[in-house]
Amino acid sequence: MQVTLKIQRFNPEKDSAPYWKEYTIEAEPTDRVLDGLLKIKLEQDGTLTMRSSCAHGICGSDAMRINGVNRLACKSLFQEVGNNVTVEPIAGLPVIKDLVVDMEPFMEHYRSVLPFFINDDPPPEKERLQSEEDRLKFEETTKCILCGCCTTSCPTFWATDAYVGPAAIVQAHRFIFDSRDQGSAQRLEILADPDGVWRCRTIFNCTNACPREIKVTEAIAEVKKEILFSKL
């Protein structure tokens, strides 16, 4: 099939503002949008710039806004997105070049929620035990690949990048609900900040955008409830 990709371009060395450019390629319906972009880069215009690595939705490099919604280019097939595809960078982060954004503000929020296991007790000789039930409590949020689809689909984040954002809350959730972890109080304290979970307006764009099908809004609500009950 013939596919037309309308891509937002921006070269910081030449352009003062982003602009749109259209490319037409031959593609299979089962090709990924990423295949299309790479094909353009290889065959038509080597200056087209995006990030990509694993190409099957596990590394989180190629989050972009495709036909108006955040997705991974490698998890979007032309048969679902159609043959007229609009591709632009994810919103709310500075655009470096074409589809590449500066992920640093995003990573800063990620680091701010203590996204690491905290348990200062001397570990046992073998594994720490954890029941299957306790393990399942945070199963879903361990799937996060830090692609940024959720945070950059959030209208609150677009309005104010002080908001810690869904991805960071998901990462915190993964530890807050881990029965082995002892850092929950500190994380809840951080997330109770005015720029923490309370800026979530329950909009669901994050949940809809998550390529790992994490129920992000639900995870955020669980954190909110946890803070509420710890304060009341």
Binding site: R65, V69, A91, V95, P155, W158, T202, I203, N208, T217
Partner: peptide, 26 residues
């Protein structure tokens, strides 16, 4: 130089093809 991320959050909000939750929030 990078493109300003804050430019046009209103247009982001209006152009994003979010689901029913997005429009409900607006």
């Amino acid at each position: 130089m990078s493109a300003n991320p804050k430019k046009g959050f209103v247009s982001s909000t209006l152009s994003y093809k979010g689901g029913i939750g997005h429009w409900s929030w607006i």
